[in-house]
Structures are given as C-alpha cells and as structure tokens.
Computed example of a mutant assay.
Amino acid sequence: MSLDPAAYFRAKLQCEIDVMDVADAEAGSLVIVDTRRRSSWDHGHIPDAVHIPTAQIPELAAELIPAGSQIVVYSWGPGCNGSTFAALAFAELGYPVKEMIGGIEYWIRNGLPVETAAGIVRSSPDALVTAHKA
C-alpha cells in the first residue's frame, strides 16, 4: 500500500503548530506544556507553561489539565523528538494535542519571552529564522 503524500502532509499539519502561531494565540485558548526535565525547565521556559516531563504525563495530566483542553507540547528543538513522545502520550489519554515545531529553541530565536529565575527575558530575534520585528 502506497501512502498518499498529500494525505500525509495534511494529517501532519493537523498535529503541529508553529511557534509564532502559539505566541499569537488568544490568551487562554491553549495549554502550553513544557515536557523537558526539571533542570531544563529551571533554565528557562515559556511564561505560563505547565511543566510535565514526558514520563509523568500519564500520572499528572488529569490532575493538572482539564479534559478537553487544547494542548501544545514543546521540548528543546528540532534536534529532539521529546515533544513527539509527549504529544503521543497526551493523544493516548484523549486530549486534543499539537506539537510546537521548533521547540523552545525557535521560541527563543524568534525573540519571544522566556521565564527564568531572574524574571522574564527576551533575546533579539534571529533574522535568519523569523520575520518578527524586534
């Protein structure tokens, strides 16, 4: 059986969301979940994200996230498939979920806010990856 490329890419796009689409989403419309380890979370994360490491999703999801919430998961970046495993875990629990492509690496490279122990910080947007204005 041959896979129809158009069907594959249509399905893929239903399961992914771009960093800038997450940043531009209406407040409260998404539950953003950082799926990285505690040390990575402590280093910096998207403000208002929920921290649930991938391995803990089955035990913590129902406690921390209301059923039916539109979830967006992220991990480090394009060289990491941690958010793919996390998206699968949420999908298996019945949550509507999308994977934020580019992860926090591209969030930072787009000059978007990151929460650290020092407070909210922003990097200058990387002109090679964004049309976002500083």
Rank of each mutant, 00 (worst) to 15 (best):
D18M: 14
R36D: 00
I32G: 09
E59Y: 08
R122N: 08
I32C: 08
G28Q: 05
A7S: 11
G103D: 04
S40D: 11
V97R: 00
A67I: 01
L93D: 02
G44P: 05
P125V: 03
V50R: 01
E115G: 07
T116W: 13
G111W: 04
G119Q: 02
R38K: 14
P96D: 09
G28W: 02
S29T: 10
D24I: 07
D42Y: 05
L88V: 11
V121W: 13
T54G: 06
Y95K: 00
V50E: 04
D34P: 00
P125N: 04
R38I: 05
Y106W: 15
T35Q: 01
T84H: 15
A89L: 03
G79K: 15
I57W: 07
T130D: 05
Y106H: 13
T116I: 10
A91S: 14
L128P: 01
T116S: 11
W107H: 04
E16F: 04
L13P: 03
N110C: 15
Y74K: 12
C80H: 09
D42T: 06
G79I: 07
S2F: 08
Y8E: 10
E16T: 08
I57V: 11
D126M: 07
N110E: 15
A61T: 00
D42P: 02
R109W: 11
V73P: 04
E16V: 06
V22L: 13
L3F: 10
H51W: 14
A7P: 01
A7T: 06
A117H: 11
N81W: 11
V72I: 14
S83E: 03
S2G: 08
K98E: 07
Q56C: 09
K98P: 02
A27W: 07
L30E: 06
W41Y: 13
A62S: 14
I17F: 03
W107T: 01
D18R: 15
D48K: 15
I52M: 04
G44L: 09
G77Y: 05
A55I: 09
L3A: 12
A27M: 08
I101L: 13
S2H: 12
A61L: 01
C80A: 09
T84G: 14
A61H: 00
V129L: 10
Q56K: 15
S83L: 07
H45S: 02
V50G: 01
I52Q: 01
L30K: 05
L30H: 07
D21L: 11
R109F: 07
D18F: 13
M20I: 13
V72N: 12
L64H: 10
V129C: 11
Y8R: 14
K133V: 05
G103M: 03
G119T: 02
D18L: 13
I101P: 01
W76N: 14
V129W: 05
N81T: 12
V129G: 03
G119R: 02
